[in-house]
Design a protein around this nucleic acid. Structure first.
Lengths: 339, 339
DNA sequence: ACGAAAAATGGGAACGTTCCCATTCTCGTG
DNA sequence: CACGAGAATGGGAACGTTCCCATTTTTCGT
């Protein structure tokens, strides 16, 4: 009872007894209501808590108040540097607002997504950042269940009117096409992963097609899963090996595509620049491959922070109409688009 | 009370009432004791739970049983692909054993580490994976407080006898030196980040120095913070621009170093291969820069899983002596070490 | 110096579980 | 046919908080 070592940490009640005050006062001290306590009491509590090594139990706190202090984040692919960068932003913002982030990785698997969503719901997360393709049904379930704020990252879900944060895809495609045209490329190949379940992929693809018509550029698109390397090789060969009137360039829809396409071009022995190459998403190595790869960088940290802001705002006003926040990309010109 | 939509999800008690059974039975159904229930009761509970959309509240469960179902992980730098890969392994293993992973990123900041550690403790995590430099005092505090299993990733802490999982650093350095020697490089520069607070950096550095003596190789070491680019440039210039009798090569202590050094070499216009380059840690782009960069790949996923295994074992037997698990690297030879 | 308002404090009842103990029911067995 | 073992079930007390209210103390204006 006195100074014996205990297995767990001290409880609020023990601190209260030790300090000779009520548990309510201790609760207030560690809650946000220190101002309601006299200085003397604050000191006594502080002393006792210190001596006993007391740490409030977030779990117990979450139970009564319904405040888990947790924000959940569902990421389709944790190994994607873009996702990690955004996650970093989300985490910073979480900390700044006293939340903790619980990240789940679905490996692009709908079953895992469902499972993880249920898990996050069972931890009563107070907000949810979603960066996955597909199945909003489950998301809705979790949402309805807990009535927790939700924000979509980089992809909208048709049948779910939710807040969303991401790149201004139209602007990105426009910037890319402008740059490529200005650099003298006349025939373009747009390579994307399958757009079916990811709205941002759809938007970029669509915009590419629209602008092609409008600008009178020659171009084509190609959507395929990146694990099918031979298919990608064939697609690229089909485009590059055809006789043409104007210099050719490949535009990559995201970082993963850029990686895969660059591998193929290298294997073929194409010279970057002569064959244009440009990608959305900036990566560590883009400046180091050949003459450097031109990219459109996304403001990843800002996107992450904006996601958290959106969560907080919706927490404050649940019935505000859904809003989309779009960020502008930054063009980083390099040798791969210099002839 | 009847079929009205509710704001949160149903509670165990509501399910019990709906099914006309006691809460204990429902608790048993969702716990691990289904076998103790009659088939009839199982069906009734299942039906009610389904209809009400019941999901057990992990927070409440954690309170009474002390089982948070959470594993904590502290990562020094979430943007390091190596850390992410290991984290991926840890997460998989967590899921396989019914735990969830809570990842905190410290951005190499001791204050954040302390803060996050306190946080994880307050969530009563049942295990802790540590991948940070420095301050074990805090870690010990959390450990002692909760008596939770602990495993160190990639770095041991001198004053803390804990389980640890990581690369076999000696073997890695040996493999690197063997390879470089066999390829005909005679003068070596070993570049590392400051080793003070990370044991694996120390081990690699030490081993490099030892083997240099033993093998009669010419070589030197250089430790600096990577954000100081000019210093790195100077160090590399000092090494490469000096007249010599044998081909020179740079060995990088980890992926971040490889990135920084490669940038410098490219800026200088050195030809990879003529100037040897080799790094520990395999990265996406290592095959694509110049003639490719030779690396020693770590089995990241396996390391992650092993960390989790270690946690579970220690959970089962708290007083087993600390154990270290060391993994072998895989050499991936590329053009940067071909003359 | 007298209330009355404001500030400081405390006592319990939740929150949604689990878990220890009863209690009831079902049989096989002597 | 009574008896106890074992299975199936239920009642209540925790777990460590927060929060509503009640109570006590202080501070002032007049």
């Amino acid at each position: 009872m006195t100074a014996t070592t205990r297995r767990g940490s001290a409880t609020l009640l023990e601190v209260a007894r030790d300090a000779g005050v009520s548990k309510t006062s201790v609760s207030r001290y560690f809650g946000d209501e220190r101002s309601r306590l006299s200085t003397a009491m604050q000191q006594r509590i502080a002393a006792s808590a210190e001596r006993l090594g007391y740490r409030p139990n977030r779990i117990a706190r979450g139970l009564k108040g319904g405040q888990s202090g947790l924000i959940g984040m569902l990421v389709a692919d944790i190994r994607n540097p873009f996702s990690v960068a955004v996650m970093h932003g989300v985490e910073q913002a979480c900390r700044a607002h006293g939340f903790s982030l619980m990240v789940c990785n679905t490996d692009n698997d709908a079953d895992q997504a469902r499972e993880h969503l249920a898990l996050l719901a069972s931890y009563r997360v107070e907000g949810l950042v979603l960066n996955v393709a597909g199945h909003p049904g489950e998301a809705l379930a979790a949402l309805a269940e807990r009535n927790a704020p939700l924000v979509l990252l980089d992809r909208a879900l048709d049948d779910l009117a939710a807040d969303m944060v991401g790149l201004d895809n139209d602007q990105a495609i426009d910037a890319a096409l402008d740059h490529l045209r200005r650099q003298g490329y006349g025939e373009l190949l747009y390579v994307s992963e399958p757009p079916e379940r990811a709205s941002s992929r759809q938007q970029r693809l669509e915009r590419f097609r629209e602008r092609l018509d409008a600008d009178g550029l020659q171009g084509e698109t190609c959507c395929l899963a990146l694990d099918d390397a031979p298919a990608l090789e064939r697609a690229i060969a089909g485009f590059l090996d055809r006789p043409s009137h104007a210099p050719k360039a490949v535009l990559c829809a995201n970082g993963n595509v850029t990686l895969a396409v660059t591998r193929v071009l290298q294997a073929r022995g194409d010279t970057l620049g002569t064959t244009g190459l440009m990608g959305i998403d900036e990566l560590d190595w883009c400046g180091m491959v050949g003459p450097g790869i031109t990219t459109l960088a996304q403001p990843t940290e800002a996107i992450g922070r904006a996601a958290m802001d959106s969560l907080l705002e919706r927490q404050a006003d649940a019935r505000r109409p859904p809003r989309q926040v779009r960020f502008s990309p930054t063009l980083i010109p390099r040798g791969s688009t210099r002839r």
